[in-house]
Write a protein that binds this DNA or RNA. Sequence first.
DNA 1: AATGTTTTTATGTGCATACATATTCACCTG
DNA 2: CAGGTGAATATGTATGCACATAAAAACATT
Lengths: 233, 233
Amino acid sequence: MNSPSFRNWQSVQDEVLRRIHAREWKPGDLIPNEVDLALEFGCARSTVNRALRSLAESGLLDRRRKAGTRVTAQPVAKATLDIAVIRHEVEERGRKYGYQRIDCGLKIPPLAISGAMQTDADNPLLHVRALHLADDAPYALEDRWINTGVVPDALDEAFQTVSANEWLLKHAPYTHGDIAFSATAALAEEASILSCPKQSALFVIDRLTWDNTQAVTKVRLLFGPGHHLRTRL
Amino acid sequence: MNSPSFRNWQSVQDEVLRRIHAREWKPGDLIPNEVDLALEFGCARSTVNRALRSLAESGLLDRRRKAGTRVTAQPVAKATLDIAVIRHEVEERGRKYGYQRIDCGLKIPPLAISGAMQTDADNPLLHVRALHLADDAPYALEDRWINTGVVPDALDEAFQTVSANEWLLKHAPYTHGDIAFSATAALAEEASILSCPKQSALFVIDRLTWDNTQAVTKVRLLFGPGHHLRTRL
DNA sequence: AATGTTTTTATGTGCATACATATTCACCTG
DNA sequence: CAGGTGAATATGTATGCACATAAAAACATT
């Protein structure tokens, strides 16, 4: 029973992963406690702790004080999506990025918008629409409302060359956000902007960004047919 | 300049977050090193390390040895989606879960499937189609191919009452998976199963699960119109 | 049996220290 | 000046120890 040196937390983690995967420890099973594992692996308890904590964070282990550590029965796969600036997203795929502002101006928003952003119904917000291009073809249509009460500087911007997407990241701090993915059929105008048939199935990302209790911006991104959002898990 | 006790890593993290958010440390800025921060906060370096490492994991800080720690210029928002078993997903929304198997049998898969799964083109796979219901209304259509070479036990299952979704999680180990989200227009048969109009925009999740180098299963989930996948960031 | 109290136990965290490792930066050499 | 070399430095991690904390389990009390 030579223990081939599990002296760093990565290798401890690998070994634990191996045992889970090899079903030596089955889903739902209680695994040995940290002290015993440290003894077996010939390392410090804190090293084992680091490894197990990391696995718990990624959802493979369930840990509770006194109750011990067990293999998650039905691991909730955690797909981590990287929502980057659209320009980066396009360039990372090796395509040329392009940007066209469509329109921009202060407007009283629809009730659905002021409601979601919790602003007064008669309070005008900055509305910006723009098209993101990849290799000169339409990539995504951005429809955004900006709370000028929170980001007054946005009023001085026309978003002609810099997308609101990027400008806001640089100028508007935020604490958290809600994001939702869905599918919708292209309306006539949307279809014409994205140069796709009317009623095409579009991939949608809705994002609402908050600075503590105040909504900063609400954006809807419509992606042309065939768009895929991929990740690993 | 009283330092009101930053003696645990959470409060250190909160304070760092506050400074980033208050723009005392702006995007791109280099922040003080761990030793200095530990001194300022009156705690051990390892405590500061824990706090900063955690922030780096969530993408708010960029850390490099010797180069130091800086506030991420354009934070890549990491949206973590929890992809649970569909039954749990439905029940968590407080709705009644239902399940109907549509069909199930060994079949030679289309080339697109055998190609993606890297199985021989003439190798039959187990094909299962099923409908998931929420409050007796169609919720998601599951179309799945199972590699019986990897999960031979699946042949003994008819998936009449237990969904392949759940059965596999319990019986088939896997190491990793690819997942993709997109939108598609409902074909005639899909529309009829989901009882929605033909050509409706459906939300799609495609998942391909691997056990090391062998594909375990490939599944396509079609969600009815109006479905949203939400998360926080 | 129902309820409240104490003990036990596994994880969670903090600290001081030491050493590892990746980079940068300054310096040296041809 | 180009290019290589080595010192300096910030983060990364392992260790041993101590104590905190949650929660189960054992025990006592009514």
